[in-house]
Design a protein around this nucleic acid. Structure first.
Length: 125
RNA sequence: GCGGGAGGAAGGGCGACCGCUUCGAUCCGUCGGAGAGGAAAGUCCAGACAGCGCAGAGCAGGGUGCCCGGCGCAAGCCGGGGCCGGGAAACCGGUGGUUAGAGCCACAGAGACCAAUGCCUCGAUUCACCUCGUUUUGGAUCGGGGAGUGAAAAGGGUAAUCCCCCCCGCUGCAACCCGAAGCAUGGCUGAUGACGCUGCUCGCCGAGGCCAGGGUACGGGGCAUCCGCCAAUUUGGCGGACAGUUCGCUUCGCGGGCUGAGACAGAUGGUUGCCGAGAAACAGAAUCUGGCUUACUCUCCUCCCGCCUAU
RNA sequence: GCCCCCGUCGUCUAGUGGCCCAGGACGCAGCCCUUUCAAGGCUGAGAUCGCCGGUUCGAAUCCGGCCGGGGGUA
């Protein structure tokens, strides 16, 4: 997950969260918004202080990042995502977090498959 | 052997595949090097560094604190000793000055601080009396003894109260410097001196300051141990110093080798194999350094104290 | 990251060495008043003063260390 695939600026986070398009999971919350230009999808990860101390937050962040890497090819281009960890994520293992990330990407920003209409994507919001 | 105490070491190792940050090389396909801690933590001290006005004077405020010796710029640390408290001991914790001065010491108690007086009792002297008492009344004076109160009483306690002696400008890398982009003004105030070096006063300086609203929240340096030299387009090479680690020696030191993390939504991860009894605890660098404090683990080493057993 | 501030009944707070095993208001419970409710009156319960040490005869208060909240900072 290289730097070009990540959200870099605070204004990007604000813009994605201001789009109000969100999907919830017991471990994570996902926001989605179309990017300014057509390009690679970008992901931002936020882990607040309620999740745990610095070690726990880093561990959660790395597991989410690794899960995003495995599902990265399924995200449609030109979409910005923000993944926010909830406190329960501190007790979840990698398999649970990866499942959460996979389901959220499937629901929020999956590439249109076959002849299916792309109306479930957030780019129309 | 069991229990307790002090000090120290260590904080997994070797790999495979897929990934991350950074540096370098590159035939742009890739390749190679480096990549969290003993506390990185809490932010409790001190210093470096940077800005603020000459970094001024006084007050306020803050800090240090038994004695001797040593290390250190300082905070602080090490060794020995004294006193107090805890413990059976090893050991642990705490430490200035109340004959410079001031304040406070509730309740209780006669009295709580340069002393003065009250209670009980004994003795002596003396006075009073419808009761004339020294085996027995009351008062006064002098002298002796005592109880009670309280943490503490003819002699204190409290400086983790002010104070005395010694030290300290303020603000902090979101400091600060360079560059770029963008915006809209309105009100109040100011050479009768605003603002500022912080809280107050003085001295000094000399033109902006405050509020509301609006705009941008980008690049680089500081910043990755420091300094110097060489070559130079970047990179690099050499030397010295500092720190860490390791080895050796003629061992309070000297010499050799190796190493020097570093971003700006913020780098160590995922899956798994072997060693192994097992891989668990606290915990993630953010300007840097030295200390202090706190959190914690499977073990290992050295020394000390007590008990039991054996010799 | 850096720099500050605050923890006292359920809530908001007063108390800055002893008069306080902590006072007040709102809330809570009971009684009175009222046909009933509200308002009003009386009474009562409710606090290991965030935690652990220390100084002192004596600590919510003074000192040290932890814990938990909150704020500022281009």
């Amino acid at each position: 997950m290289q730097r070009a695939h990540r959200l870099r600026r605070g204004t990007d986070f604000d813009r994605v969260r201001a789009s109000r398009r969100s999907w919830a999971h017991p471990l994570l919350i996902c926001y989605a918004s179309p990017a300014d230009g057509i390009g690679l999808p970008r992901i931002g990860i936020a882990v607040g202080r309620r999740v745990g101390n610095a070690v726990v937050r880093n561990q959660v962040k790395r597991r989410i990042r690794e899960a995003v890497r495995t599902f990265y090819g399924k995200i449609q281009p030109g979409v910005d995502l923000v993944l926010i960890a909830r406190p329960a994520a501190s007790k979840a293992g990698y398999a649970d977090l990866a499942g959460a990330v996979g389901s959220l990407i499937e629901r929020a920003a999956a590439k249109p498959v076959g002849s299916k209409s792309p109306t479930d994507g957030p780019a129309q919001s």
